[in-house]
Nucleic acid binder design. Structure first.
Lengths: 314, 314
DNA sequence: ACTCGACAATTCAGTAAGGGTATGGATGTT
DNA sequence: AACATCCATACCCTTACTGAATTGTCGAGT
């Protein structure tokens, strides 16, 4: 098979139709160039140039080779560039796992950031509950996870990305709270939820929320009267909308709540404030060899107040 | 820039994911293969494989390179093949110049022959009068000419391809010949055309026919009463069809004559037979470097009675 | 915990490939 | 007829690739 330098030599001669000029263009002297062309012709078993001491011209075989040689060389250059880009993280593919809520808060922020700084990187998006994301991170199906702080599997590391708080969600105009409850807009002590029908996070897929809600109830001395389980916030909100009970959801879920649901901030007194923190973490496999992932992690690293922060106020 | 052997080495390792096995496939030993891959990685500035002593796996950069490397190598192989084919005349392009009449006789025969024996050769067809073909042969615009024996330009050689004869064409049912003329099907002595309105070949574009017709008339002692000139047979036949006079055309033109024209063989006695020969020649530039042309010339060379011969009976 | 086995990396010596300088030979030019 | 131009050839030298032998390292099996 011919070599790439030979193709370059051929293209130069074919364009200049002059061995001396072509040699100069290739930064070499004329004799080795002549030899390279001869070698190429020998390897191809084809005369590429008709040459006398007076003029050089392409043969039919040479004319056939010229566009193909250009194409091959072009492709080599492009390949070189692409590989460098992927290797340096300027291009590539990142698979992001994210929870339903993160899909409306952290994910768009991250994608916007990435689009600005890593335009050649494409993303594969997978909505997954935190535990499935963790599995994916171990197996390599997922490069970056936007998930709740659950117990990490070996090799997976994480860091806090956003903080949020839970708010009370209940059917609009409901009388569940009783007449003693504060009006709309006033923070609501959790005691008012004592023994009310509670729509709860499942222990398996949403253990983090499950445990958090139980802790909050316990700290307020309220009894959790669980009447339904669901693993995803939108499902819980649908139950609320249907009037089946109350629940606690992250404040960022208010942005995509269905009509017929109203929200109350939770009264933070008596230590509730300190407990009411929902963490969203950024997780990745520490052995990842995907340069685009490493670059993204660097990019998302909070550079003193310029990072992604807690959204949505009361 | 990387080299093609390096790409081959890379593809082998990427497919085997085992340096030893890949080396065997490449008919070399493992150490140089390892170094080739290292060199490739260095040149690309990218880690292509994640390798421990236990397993070898592609990195993101390697996964990017693999399909492109395959594509480049494929293209090189195809290019090699194509150039060889063009060089050996198995593929390529031949521009054929041909006269209007040859387009209905010699050209189809030649094309059929070529299609069977040189299926990868494509043809560019240009209908041209003989003199224009001659110009094209000199300039290189035309590779092969099917033309009348006219004075050859330097560098252009030719050989006889087909022989034909002239026949008389006259308006159907015409009384121009008079009552003494033989009935349809009988050869017609040229004396019957004496002083009849004669539709003639132009001296410039169709000098060969022009001169031939005059010689035939002279040998028969008939006077040529030229009333119209045209350079192409179809135009002359159109005049005949319109009843404007008589003319002489190659017998092979009978195949595409319009309705309203009848033909008579020319009586060959008194030396007319020997004069009434229309030659069609195959011409080419003897310095042609187009291998497909050379191969075609070899193919068309009359191999003892198997060549293209005189068509059309009486 | 230790040894063994598998496998990629390293070292070293021999050889082939590629570039440079000097020169030859053919072809138009003045 | 001497000259200029330009591609081909000859020869030398440096670089780079290959193979054989060896080392280093990681995981599996006992």
């Amino acid at each position: 098979m011919f070599s790439l330098p030979q193709l370059e030599a051929f293209v130069a001669v074919a364009e200049e139709l002059h061995f001396g000029a072509a040699a100069e263009r290739l930064n070499m002297t004329q004799p080795p160039l002549s030899r390279q062309i001869q070698m190429l012709e020998k390897k191809l078993g084809a005369q590429l140039f008709g040459r006398t001491s007076r003029k050089v011209e392409l043969t039919a075989a040479g004319a056939t080779l010229l566009p193909r040689a250009r194409q091959i060389l072009d492709m080599c250059i492009k390949t070189d560039l692409d590989v460098r880009r992927v290797s340096s993280g300027q291009a590539g593919t990142i698979t992001v796992g994210y929870t339903a809520i993160a899909g409306h808060s952290a994910l768009p922020l991250m994608l916007r950031r990435a689009a600005e700084n890593m335009p050649r990187v494409s993303f594969v998006l997978r909505e997954l509950v935190s535990t499935d994301q963790m599995d994916g991170l171990v197996k390599g199906n997922v490069d970056i996870g936007l998930l709740r702080p659950i117990v990490a599997r070996p090799g997976v590391v994480s860091r806090p990305l956003m903080q949020d708080r839970l708010v009370v969600a209940l059917p609009e105009g409901s009388s569940l709270l009783g007449t003693m409850a504060p009006r709309n807009g006033e923070p609501l002590p959790l005691g008012f939820l004592d023994r009310l029908p509670l729509l709860m996070y499942s222990t398996k897929e949403a253990r983090y929320f499950h445990d958090l809600v139980l802790r909050l109830f316990a700290s307020a001395g309220a009894h959790a009267n669980i009447t339904q389980y669901a693993s995803q916030v939108p499902a819980l909100l649908a139950f609320v909308q249907a009037g089946l009970g109350v629940t606690l959801v992250p404040a960022s879920a208010m942005a995509f709540a269905p009509a017929g649901v109203e929200f109350h901030e939770i009264d933070g007194r008596n230590g509730v404030q300190e407990l009411n923190r929902v963490e969203l973490e950024l997780a990745w496999n520490e052995e990842t060899a995907n340069p685009a992932v490493l670059r993204l992690l660097e990019l998302i690293k909070p550079p003193a107040g310029d990072g992604i922060e807690s959204p949505g106020g009361a």
